Computed example of a mutant assay.
Amino acid sequence: MTCKAGQAKKTFCLSEFASLAALYCRESGETNLRTGRSIVGRKTYHVTPASNGDWKVTGVGNSRASGVHANKADAVAQAKELAKSQDLGQVVIHSRDGKIQT
Score class of each variant (00 low, 15 high):
11 T>W: 09
97 D>S: 09
48 T>L: 07
35 T>G: 10
99 K>S: 12
69 H>M: 03
61 G>F: 00
46 H>D: 05
65 A>Y: 04
50 A>N: 14
47 V>H: 00
88 L>P: 08
68 V>Y: 12
98 G>F: 03
34 R>W: 14
20 L>E: 00
12 F>R: 04
68 V>C: 06
3 C>W: 00
59 G>Y: 02
79 A>G: 05
4 K>L: 13
86 Q>W: 03
15 S>I: 08
45 Y>N: 04
29 G>R: 05
1 M>V: 07
95 S>F: 05
80 K>F: 05
11 T>E: 12
48 T>M: 09
5 A>Y: 08
34 R>Y: 15
87 D>I: 12
54 D>P: 10
75 A>K: 00
56 K>Y: 03
100 I>W: 07
4 K>W: 12
90 Q>Y: 05
32 N>F: 13
18 A>G: 10
76 V>N: 01
98 G>H: 04
60 V>I: 01
86 Q>V: 05
8 A>L: 09
31 T>R: 15
82 L>H: 00
95 S>D: 14
25 C>I: 07
54 D>G: 12
28 S>R: 09
11 T>K: 08
95 S>Y: 06
38 S>Q: 03
64 R>K: 08
8 A>S: 09
76 V>L: 05
5 A>Q: 15
94 H>K: 06
8 A>I: 00
29 G>V: 04
11 T>L: 12
33 L>G: 09
65 A>E: 11
78 Q>R: 05
50 A>Y: 11
47 V>K: 02
99 K>T: 12
65 A>G: 06
24 Y>V: 13
60 V>N: 06
10 K>H: 14
80 K>C: 07
100 I>N: 04
69 H>L: 01
79 A>P: 06
58 T>G: 01
9 K>Y: 02
11 T>I: 10
75 A>C: 06
71 N>S: 07
92 V>L: 08
102 T>H: 15
10 K>D: 07
29 G>C: 06
74 D>F: 10
42 R>H: 11
38 S>V: 04
95 S>T: 10
20 L>M: 11
34 R>A: 15
65 A>F: 05
35 T>I: 06
16 E>T: 00
90 Q>R: 14
12 F>S: 02
12 F>M: 04
64 R>D: 02
61 G>Y: 04
61 G>K: 03
42 R>Q: 13
58 T>R: 04
97 D>E: 15
98 G>N: 11
64 R>E: 00
13 C>D: 02
21 A>L: 13
39 I>G: 08
99 K>L: 07
92 V>C: 01
59 G>C: 06
87 D>E: 11
70 A>R: 10
47 V>S: 01
20 L>R: 09
86 Q>H: 13
81 E>I: 02
60 V>Y: 04
5 A>V: 08
24 Y>P: 04
